[in-house]
Design a protein around this nucleic acid. Structure first.
Length: 200
DNA sequence: TTTGTCAATGGGAGCA
DNA sequence: TGCTCCCATTGACAAA
């Protein structure tokens, strides 16, 4: 059961969850997903400048005339790795950083910018999914607790070993616990219309 | 064929 | 007004 349940924090730890830290752009894990990559450099070395230049030319030509739509750019492992590393240090880039990174990756600054935007969106989505999971678990535990407390109330009512007294929240006068009932709508313990015993 | 991923686009909002 | 961000969405592509 979550503690300090009145405060929802953005950084949450799910009890029993093994994926709590997986989204934190560890770089390697994210990169491993891209085993096959169109733009992958065979030697695993530097970024293939020629391919990117070809893509740029292709893009320009397709923008000028209404030719076939440009093929989807696939970032190389190297590019993805560097972008992830950069993202790990900073989730946003200033114009200089963006330009430098773009030059280093042989990409356009706009492409770097877009990558960071999409990366932030993915992080946020992951975070939201985790929070959703957390709230589900919390709801489950609260439901269980509610069930237990209801049962407990029923047991206490069923005991009926003499009328135990409770203090009225209004008058602070002792009153019979048998006047307590469970509201079927809000499921709270309420007092029924109290007979004024002094008039009997 | 369906589904998931991700680069890219367009539009609206905030800011200097 | 231009820049940047976020957000929703699109479309290409790979894997199931």
């Amino acid at each position: 059961m979550p503690e300090n349940s009145t405060c929802l924090e953005l950084t949450i730890s799910i009890p029993g969850s093994s994926s709590s830290s997986s989204f934190h752009s560890s770089g390697e894990g994210y990169n491993m997903m891209r085993e096959l990559d169109i733009n992958q450099v065979p030697s695993g070395g530097d970024i293939d400048e020629e391919e990117n230049m070809e893509e740029l030319e292709e893009e320009e030509s397709s923008n000028n005339n209404n030719g076939p739509p440009r093929k989807k750019l696939r970032l190389t492992k190297q590019q993805s790795f560097l972008l992830e590393e950069s993202f790990r240090h900073n989730h946003t880039l200033n114009p200089k950083q963006k330009e430098a990174l773009a030059m280093q990756l042989k990409l356009k600054a706009r492409q770097v910018e877009v990558w960071f935007q999409n990366r932030r969106a993915r992080s946020k989505l992951k975070q939201t999914e985790m929070e959703c999971e957390y709230l589900k678990r919390w709801f489950g535990s609260l439901t269980e607790q509610n069930r237990r407390l209801k049962r407990e109330v029923e047991e206490l009512r069923a005991m009926k070993v003499g009328p135990p007294t409770v203090l009225s929240p209004h008058s602070c006068q002792p009153r019979s616990a048998s006047t307590l009932t469970m509201c079927p709508h809000c499921e709270r313990v309420t007092t029924t219309a109290v007979r004024d015993e002094s008039k009997i």
